[in-house]
């Protein structure tokens, strides 16, 4: 689509500069998109592994807890699990990939997870609690990866939209407009030439 501009030489120069800039921007954005995609694919692989690990861990943890739940009376289980023996400190930082800030979570566990008596409880409860504790750390890692995947996906989407806008809208429009101005200027030139020739003819006839 031809832009609404005055077909002047100044405008032509300005549009040529814009076109050059748009092409450079397009190349940079394409590079950024490729880099983001590369990170995104490696993150997806890690996320898939982490997700599988968490899902397997959950199945295992629930299985162990179910065994404890079946054998230990409800009120004893309530009393044993009501107050956790560990204190967890979650710290949050970030790392940057291209222009995207991705979160990084680290978790510090203090205390003893087995914070109940040993008379009325069983080893399956110990195993379930320890399995949940490990799983908790994996869950935090999974949350970090999932957030990173979401942020990267959004950034890729945004970048792709910009690349497409440049590639299919701005650059063709600029090229078309430049072509239009160029043709218009040539037309003016031809018009001038014809007018001059005409004037010359009139002058010669007199």
């Amino acid at each position: 689509m031809i832009m609404a501009v005055n077909p002047t030489r100044m405008e032509l120069l300005r549009l040529r500069k814009r076109l050059m800039l748009a092409r450079r921007g397009h190349k940079l954005l394409r590079d950024k998109q490729d880099e983001l995609l590369r990170h995104f694919l490696s993150l997806i692989k890690r996320w898939k592994d982490a997700r599988e690990g968490v899902e397997n861990g959950l199945v295992q943890g629930f299985g162990l807890f179910l065994r404890a739940f079946l054998v230990i009376p409800g009120y004893v289980l309530y009393e044993s699990c009501i107050r956790p023996g560990v204190e967890t400190v979650l710290s949050c930082s970030s790392r940057q990939i291209t222009s995207v800030r991705l979160p990084q979570f680290s978790i510090e566990v203090k205390g003893d997870p087995i914070a109940y008596g040993f008379v009325n409880t069983t080893f399956s409860l110990d195993k379930a609690i320890l399995s949940y504790l490990n799983l908790f750390q994996d869950l935090i890692k999974l949350a970090e990866l999932e957030k990173a995947v979401i942020l990267l996906a959004e950034e890729i989407k945004k970048t792709r939209r910009r690349v497409n806008a440049l590639e299919y809208v701005l650059i063709p429009n600029l090229e078309e407009t430049i072509k239009y101005i160029f043709m218009k200027l040539e037309e003016f030139e031809r018009g001038n030439l014809v007018r001059l020739m005409k004037v010359k003819e009139i002058v010669r006839a007199h």
Partner: peptide, 12 residues
């Protein structure tokens, strides 16, 4: 503060 199991152990 972290030794809750001791309550249970003492009581048992």
């Amino acid at each position: 503060y972290g030794r809750l199991d001791m309550v249970d152990i003492i009581l048992d």
